[in-house]
Simulated assay, not measured.
Amino acid sequence: MKTAHDLVAAAKSQIQEISIAEAEDAIKEADILLDVREPDEYAASHLQGAVNIPRGLLEFKLSGSPELSARNLNIVVYCKTSGRAALAASTLHEMGYLQVKSIAGGFDAWIQSGKSIVSPALPTFE
């Protein structure tokens, strides 16, 4: 029986994973930056310009969004540590998307490298 780790390892062997150093340029060139974390993770903080489509809804959201139907879209995907992003990138390839990159180490590696993030501030009620 395969474990989650086995599935992620298999996915990573089939996708293009890019380093944090390569990620900034890849994001600038991307048509869409996908954050496949859960909505509460995204709401807490995310990369500038990212669109949140949780991993569990990815296939359904993409299939139901005409603006995301072009299979030649340049897509960069990330999650917290890169496991969900690897699975998402693999799924995107299976769906026929041709230009998909996953950020190695994910959001955590992005933060550890000192890159900027968006952290919405809660309103004050004073």
Rank of each mutant, 00 (worst) to 15 (best):
G105H: 08
Y78H: 13
R55Y: 08
G114A: 07
A86K: 08
S69E: 12
R37W: 07
H5F: 12
S90V: 00
G83F: 05
D40S: 14
V77N: 01
L34Q: 07
T81R: 11
A70E: 12
K28P: 00
T124W: 01
S19H: 05
A121E: 15
G114K: 08
T3D: 02
G114Y: 04
F107W: 07
L58P: 01
Y42P: 02
S19L: 12
T3N: 09
Q48R: 13
E59H: 06
A9I: 06
A9N: 09
E24Q: 14
K101N: 08
S116K: 15
A44L: 13
L87Y: 04
A11G: 05
F125D: 09
V77K: 04
K61F: 06
N52H: 08
V77T: 11
L122Y: 05
L47K: 03
D40F: 08
D108A: 13
A50V: 08
A89W: 02
I32S: 00
K80G: 14
G56K: 10
M95P: 01
A121H: 07
A43F: 01
P66I: 13
E59P: 04
R71H: 10
A26I: 10
D31P: 06
E67R: 14
I27Y: 02
P39R: 13
I18D: 04
L92K: 03
S102P: 06
V100H: 01
S45L: 09
A89F: 02
G106R: 07
E126Y: 12
P39Y: 10
R84C: 04
F125E: 09
Y42G: 05
S119N: 08
A86Q: 07
G105Q: 03
G56W: 06
A44I: 10
I103V: 14
L98H: 12
P120S: 11
E24I: 12
I15E: 00
E24C: 02
A89Y: 05
F125R: 12
H46W: 05
K61Q: 12
L92G: 03
E126G: 15
L58R: 06
L58M: 03
L87E: 03
D40R: 13
I53N: 02
I117L: 09
F107D: 03
K115P: 02
G105E: 01
A104D: 11
G106P: 01
V51H: 12
E24M: 10
L92Y: 00
L7F: 04
Y42S: 05
L47I: 15
M95R: 00
S65K: 09
W110G: 07
S116D: 13
A23L: 09
E38Y: 12
I111Q: 11
I18A: 08
G106C: 04
L33T: 11
S90A: 11
E17W: 01
K101E: 07
Y97A: 05
G49M: 05
M95D: 01
L33D: 00
A21E: 13
K12L: 10
F60Y: 15
I20N: 03
